[in-house]
Design a protein around this nucleic acid. Structure first.
Length: 172
DNA sequence: CCCTGATTCGC
DNA sequence: GCGAATCAGG
């Protein structure tokens, strides 16, 4: 995948909207979050809301300890203003929806707790992929609860999806 | 352990 | 320029 003008533009847009690098990578497709971050840096559009501060990096014991000094110098020259002003305003977004809503309708006789209501691009290998709502609707989402050791669904939805043969027979 | 962004460096 | 590997932090 190469960075076409459209893709770069979309990257700029999503980044400015406060989406995380991995989310942007998911929407762009064909690139890793690292690729997105790398591109963001090359475009010099880092530092938008404070997600992780940028203290003096240092790392690896690689060669050339030369520039380490300049870093140290810059750090001591200090200018700890660390602006954290307009940053917080951007950090809102879809994360804060009132999931509180009434309960999930009783599916069979299995009780399912509150879902995280994730969007498709937010799913990972360990999020429950149980669909909630109408796929044709804008607010369609997936359960999203932890589904680590229980396959594609969280342990609750797994019980609904994978009923033991015996239980299914009895229910019928 | 999950995630975040930041940085380095071989390609 | 690109992005995986790595680092630091939440």
């Amino acid at each position: 995948m190469n960075w076409t003008d459209e893709r770069v533009e979309l990257l700029r847009k999503l980044w400015s909207e406060g989406l995380s690098a991995s989310q942007i990578a998911a929407q762009l497709g064909g690139v890793s979050r690292n690729a997105v971050i790398g591109k963001v840096h090359r475009l010099k559009l880092s530092g938008r809301g404070r997600a992780t501060a940028a203290p003096a990096r240092q790392k690896k014991a690689t060669q050339g300890a030369s520039m380490q000094k300049s870093v140290a110098r810059a750090a001591s020259a200090t200018r700890h203003v660390t602006a954290s002003i307009g940053a917080t305003a951007l950090q809102v977004q879809f994360d804060a929806e009132p999931v509180a809503r009434h309960y999930i309708r009783p599916v069979e006789n299995v009780v399912v707790p509150i879902s995280r209501n994730l969007q498709l691009v937010e799913l990972t290998e360990r999020t429950c992929k149980w669909p909630n709502g109408d796929p044709l609707s804008e607010d369609f989402s997936f359960c999203g609860n932890d589904a680590a050791e229980t396959g594609p669904y969280c342990k609750y939805h797994a019980r609904v999806a994978f009923q033991p043969a015996a239980e299914r027979r009895r229910a019928r």
